[in-house]
């Protein structure tokens, strides 16, 4: 019963907030409604028993990604309304709905839901975080490490792209570099 109430409440609120995100002309409204929608999506995860995923959603999406967006907002003019030259709205809605429907049918069609069996079943006694940890560090260790390297690469790319004058060192003066070069030449 409570699950039902929570599900309908979360779904209505999430859909409404994401509609605001997509339709709003103001960047700040869009960003705050996106953040609120992500908090509610973590509510879905908690209903579904994926506690660890919900916490990660809160920390990474609401904590990190939205903070990144709001910092990036300082570079752009966020208070001004966005003027967009929109093509006909009805056509876009029709195309969007139709292609989403086609995607859903495409991915749902080949599934024989009775034939699916759990590859990594959840354990009865263990909590969700323990289960996730066991599977993540045994079966999914290589993707986990690759994801770590990918995040490192993305971090370096973000620093290089957003920082200005990254080719000039801030901590040491150029004359010191020259001295090092002189020493190298003498060797």
């Amino acid at each position: 019963m409570y699950e039902m109430i929570a599900f309908y409440l979360f779904s209505v609120l999430t859909i409404g907030l994401f509609l605001v995100t997509v339709m709003s002309k103001n960047v700040l409204y869009a960003m705050t409604s996106l953040a609120a929608g992500m908090v509610l999506i973590s509510g879905f995860f908690f209903i579904l028993g994926a506690d660890f995923l919900g916490v990660v959603q809160l920390i990474v999406y609401v904590g990190a990604i939205m903070a990144l967006y709001s910092f990036a907002m300082m570079f752009f003019d966020a208070t001004r309304d966005i003027k967009e030259k929109n093509t006909s709205n009805a056509l876009v809605f029709l195309l969007g709905g139709l292609s989403a429907l086609v995607l859903v049918l495409m991915f749902a069609a080949p599934i024989h839901s009775e034939a699916i069996q759990a590859l990594y079943p959840m354990h009865e006694g263990a909590g969700n975080a323990q289960d996730v940890g066991i599977v993540l560090f045994t079966k999914y260790l290589v993707p986990f490490e690759v994801a770590a390297v990918m995040l490192l690469v993305a971090m370096i790319a973000g620093i290089i792209l957003a920082g200005k004058k990254m080719d000039i060192s801030l901590t040491e003066d150029i004359s010191a570099d020259d001295e090092i070069l002189v020493v190298k030449d003498e060797k």
Partner: peptide, 11 residues
């Protein structure tokens, strides 16, 4: 993937 996409994309 979403986190790294946002980092690079915002840059």
């Amino acid at each position: 993937v979403a986190a790294s996409e946002v980092a690079v994309g915002l840059g």
